[in-house]
Design a protein around this nucleic acid. Structure first.
Length: 728
DNA sequence: TACATCTTTATTTTT
DNA sequence: TAAAGATGTA
């Protein structure tokens, strides 16, 4: 036994070992990027179980992503000869779903309640707004959804929300109506899973104590990303005597815009009486220069919990900084470097191309495509979010749960059956009159010819699918759904239908290989799975492809070589972030995440000009580049060419397909303004506003005005006669 | 119902 | 620029 324990614990550094073997107290582990966080988390669970301090069922481990939860389970089974089935290891939402399924009566939900993903929620809210004749201009569904989710994540119900003006009063009304609609239809959105579980545990003392007694050890991953409700939920479930092991990194908190509160880490320290904060600062991923850059950058943030990554891997290569004149020049540079790296033997999958926002991927893709390099863009629609898959799932949902009006409306006339908007309206009116779900109200509605038979036929097909669910295995039920719904037939005739049919077949495969480890029946479990796990955003396996993704989606990943592109003021840091509270600091953390993805080689690139929203924009070099000590960097790029070189740059946009030729690298970004001493794209300084770049001009003579994008104060129009602009 | 035309808008998104 | 959503027409 001791020697087995040795294998478990061997190879851990002193801090990791201390964290893993901590007694039954609550503790905060500040785990820097690449410091072996997942290893610590799983090894601790294994250690607790092996040493007899905890039983597998007495452990609660919470993550944010399904991937992280799976990873933990896989590693755990590798360390211990135990069956992880029945263990509470999962995402916040997954565990809440489990809790609510087990106690659906207590919380007033039907046993087969359905889960709305963000899309479903939005269309549900749209229905609420329509039924209330709300002004959708003034109250866009997106904003209403944001309001409702924010309230729920603060643990506040509609009835408890205090409006502060007329707009918020309307919002609260929508919230209340939406709550009612969801309840009537037996559906819950993501935030509701959390809130309902929280309320259950608050209200039911016996249940609460039951779980508190059971879970002596609670472990939480990515603690910096918890929102208020998740924090309170943990507090409730953990109870006063449990050991809560919170692992996180305040420097990697990049989801504040979604309600995450870094402050939860400090709060945790106080409220859970944390005696010693353990810092995992040894980094096993990146070489020295890269870590030094990350450390230097992040010290510009205030109020950090404090941490300095180090490595014994040596300094490694300098950070390469490339400043292009145009976005295409930037892309061409990247392509050339990737080619070189590939020729040197690096796998393309080991090279990442990161950007702040998805729109930036286009230019990059174009250049990569032209170069004939295989690449993969992360971040598109995921499997269970595709329209055809959602249609098929809507059929299954209706078969399982007739109250699901959202599902009903999605497929009542898709594929088209001649049931028009008017018929649907009549059914909705009838449903309100009879206080029934649409699928039950529909047969009561008198419709004319085509629509009447269409509706009857539709209901009959749903009914056939329902009886199929009673007898057939899951995969065959889905097969039946594809046929009965006419979806397969429909897509056969559609232009781009082949891929959709493939996805539908894939859905059958997914069902066939779905292993149901819950108490639910297969269909219900599969539907939960489909809502809670939208599917992989993994790149195609097998293919050696360059990896393109936003910095956000790169969190948690690592690559030998990383390009961080578009490092311009306004883009990264994003201009919208500058006006938000702590927005700049979150952008900086994002940059910190980007830098720490790299193992050996890091490129930082930017362009003086860039096509954005159909216009050319001129951005200053990102302050984040300046925050990295020059001594760590090697500067490359055409900006070192003489700056006086001025010309039109019109022609190059028109033939981007040839732009990877070397002469395009010499293109420049400035265009002279007729009759004025300044040019667009020129760097200037203002006595009050500081440095900036001229982005546009209009008028002439005394009326001449120029638009200047200032680093400190943003974009301004200035009359040249008055403004004391100087060329820099 | 399907298709065309216009208007609007444009961070990031674990569940 | 270009994609999505709203509105108009056959």
């Amino acid at each position: 036994m001791p020697e087995m324990n040795d294998t478990l614990l061997s190879g851990l550094n002193p801090e990791q070992l201390a964290a893993v073997t901590l007694p039954r107290v609550s503790s905060l582990v500040l785990a820097g990027a690449g410091s072996g966080k997942t290893r610590v988390l799983t090894t601790r669970i294994a250690h607790l179980i092996r040493s007899g301090q905890a039983s597998p069922l007495g452990v609660l481990a919470v993550t944010f992503t399904n991937k992280a939860a799976r990873e933990m389970l896989v590693r755990l089974t590798g360390m211990l000869p135990i069956n992880t089935r029945g263990m509470w290891v999962g995402t916040f939402h997954g565990l809440c779903n489990r809790l609510l399924r087990a106690h659906h009566r207590e919380v007033g939900l039907p046993s087969l309640f359905q889960i709305l993903d963000s899309q479903d929620q939005q269309s549900s809210i749209k229905r609420v707004l329509r039924s209330m004749n709300a002004d959708e201009e003034r109250y866009p569904p997106r904003q209403v959804a944001y309001f409702i989710n924010s309230q729920k994540e603060e643990g506040i119900r509609a009835a408890q929300t205090k409006p502060w003006d007329s707009a918020s009063r309307a919002m609260v009304e929508f919230y209340a109506a939406y709550e009612q609609q969801c309840q009537r239809e037996g559906v819950v959105d993501f935030a509701e899973l959390l809130l309902r579980s929280y309320e259950l545990l608050t209200a039911d003392q016996r249940l609460r104590e039951h779980y508190q007694e059971r879970f002596g050890f609670v472990l939480v991953d990515e603690f910096q990303d918890t929102n208020r409700l998740q924090y309170e939920w943990l507090k409730l479930l953990a109870g006063p005597s449990a050991s809560v092991f919170a692992v996180g990194d305040d420097d990697q908190s990049i989801y504040a815009f979604r309600g995450a509160r870094v402050g939860n880490m400090r709060l945790f320290e106080q409220e859970f009486n944390v005696q010693h904060v353990i810092r995992l600062e040894q980094n096993y991923r990146s070489q020295g220069n890269i870590l030094d850059a990350a450390n230097a950058l992040i010290t510009n943030n205030q109020g950090r919990l404090g941490k300095n990554l180090w490595t014994d891997a040596g300094k490694g290569e300098p950070i390469r900084v490339y400043e292009a004149d145009t976005d295409f020049g930037e892309a061409s540079f990247i392509v050339e470097e990737v080619r070189t790296l590939k020729a040197e033997g690096l796998a393309l999958t080991d090279i990442a191309l990161l950007y702040r926002s998805n729109a930036q991927s286009r230019v990059l893709e174009q250049a990569i495509f032209n170069a004939g390099l295989p690449y993969r863009v992360y971040g598109g629609l995921r499997f269970f979010e595709r329209a055809e898959v959602k249609h098929a799932l809507a059929w299954l949902r209706l078969a399982a749960h007739a109250e699901d009006d959202g599902a009903f409306l999605r497929v009542i006339n898709f594929p088209p059956q001649g049931i028009g908007a008017r018929s649907i309206e009549l059914i909705q009116e009838q449903a309100i009159a009879l206080n029934m779900p649409l699928s039950r109200a529909a047969p009561e509605v008198k419709l004319s010819g085509k629509a009447a038979t269409g509706v009857q036929d539709f209901l009959a097909r749903i009914e056939r699918l329902r009886s199929a669910t009673q007898t057939l295995p899951l995969a065959e039920v889905i097969e039946e759904a594809l046929t009965l719904s006419g979806l397969r037939e429909h897509y056969k005739t559609e232009r781009e239908g082949a891929e959709r049919i493939e996805n539908l077949e894939e859905l059958i495969n997914a069902a066939a290989s779905f292993n149901n480890d819950s108490e639910l029946d297969d269909l219900a479990a599969f539907l939960s799975h489909a809502s809670l796990e939208a599917g992989e955003r993994e790149a195609g396996v097998g293919q050696d492809a360059l990896q393109l993704m936003t910095v956000h989606s790169a969190k948690g990943l690592e690559f030998s070589a990383v390009f961080v592109s578009g490092l311009e003021e306004g883009l990264f840091p994003h201009e919208n972030a500058l006006s938000e509270n702590d927005g700049l600091e979150e952008e900086r953390r994002l940059m910190y995440v980007a830098i720490t993805r790299a193992r050996k080689r890091l490129y930082l690139t930017r362009s003086a000009s860039r096509m954005l929203h159909g216009q050319v924009r001129y951005g200053l070099r990102s302050r984040f580049i300046d925050e990295i000590p020059e001594g760590l960097c090697r500067f490359l790029g055409p900006s070192q060419a003489p700056k006086e070189f001025i010309s039109q740059w019109a022609s190059h946009r028109e033939s981007p397909l040839h732009a990877s030729s070397s002469k395009d690298q010499a293109l420049f970004s400035r265009a002279a303004i007729k009759g004025l001493p300044f040019s667009i794209g020129q760097s200037v300084a203002h006595p009050k506003f500081g440095p900036g770049v001229i982005t546009a001009a209009e008028g002439s003579g005394e009326d001449a005005r120029v638009q200047v994008n200032f680093r400190e104060v943003g974009s301004k129009w200035l009359v040249l006669t008055y403004a004391k602009l100087t060329a820099v």
